[in-house]
Nucleic acid binder design. Sequence first.
DNA 1: GTCTATATTTTGATAGAC
DNA 2: GTCTATCAAAATATAGAC
Lengths: 201, 201
Amino acid sequence: MDQEIEIFNASTITTTSSEILIAALKLFAKKGYFNTSLTDIAKKANIKNTSEIYQHFTNKQVIAAQLYADIFANLNESIDEIWLKNDKPSEQLRGTVDLLFRLTEDAPDVMRFLLNVKFDEFLPDEKPLQETAAFCKIYKIIQAGVTSGEIRNIDPMLGYIYFFGIVNATLQGILAGVLDKKADTYLLQTWLAAWNCIVKK
Amino acid sequence: MDQEIEIFNASTITTTSSEILIAALKLFAKKGYFNTSLTDIAKKANIKNTSEIYQHFTNKQVIAAQLYADIFANLNESIDEIWLKNDKPSEQLRGTVDLLFRLTEDAPDVMRFLLNVKFDEFLPDEKPLQETAAFCKIYKIIQAGVTSGEIRNIDPMLGYIYFFGIVNATLQGILAGVLDKKADTYLLQTWLAAWNCIVKK
DNA sequence: GTCTATATTTTGATAGAC
DNA sequence: GTCTATCAAAATATAGAC
């Protein structure tokens, strides 16, 4: 609640708040929101009993909302940086794919939360994915690619779905262990497959 | 429990059991398993109170397990037919894509259940997707395609992920309303995009 | 075989002592 | 500010009357 925590990188300082968030993230990613009780979270955060959680968060839903906000804010910032450092849509998309593969290796629980958790089932008031700042930026990158001629003449939404359909499915395969090598192993070929789907030839 | 119901096509006879299953399917597809109470199911199935549900199913989980079994059995049969009617992997995959698009239009709740519901969160004892008969057949089709040279030399699992990454993401877009035209509108281009990902050129 | 009533359990949440 | 005790609510599940 207080300050935004650094979920992507392990933060050096750990407050009780951030320990609760990180415990919740791990449990939500592994078992899902509804299979995770406050008792589970307290235990994982090395807190004696659930009462203490209420000193930091008004209820369980707020914990999830905070995670959702933090993760999407971080994602949005990262995409901003990628956008600034690269000019062409192809480079920006490549940078985004690199980011997602890196996160899959370094912060698998964040990626599980992003890819596997159905937010709308317990955060009915949050915006859907297509209205998040992070998504809108990606969408605009694809639009720009179509305009500039780098990407073929396709409905940008369909382009987004094809491109991230491949990327996300691959990451989910890695996270689930169905693809059993390191994420990095699949990066180049998956980028090529996804980009090839939308590139103008 | 008693007899397998016809979920894909609206069945002519409707027993109380099948009405409960269909009500549960709709609710699970719309709100998720944990947001659906037996009270909700009873109401939707036009049953006065929850007690009567226990005349037909031992508990809520068993309702979900029955749906899971019925849907995958049906899917498996359909894929069998496609497999018998077509020789080449390309034709068999095309038939499968046709099937999934048809289901998305004719039985959207079945497809929502298949694509959006995370079974392992409430059916921990069910086999994971990769061990279902339906999946194994698709996997073998892709393997055969690689062997015959129709499909490029790719890990069949990765081929599966690329191909159905595109197909499933598109179907999810249609089901969520993000793609707002009829499923059929997207069929050809999505098939081409997915097939193009794995075809040998 | 359908409905009333109730038991049971879990878990989210609060109050208050120390 | 940490722990004990407890409440409240919701939902699953059962028993038994009619």
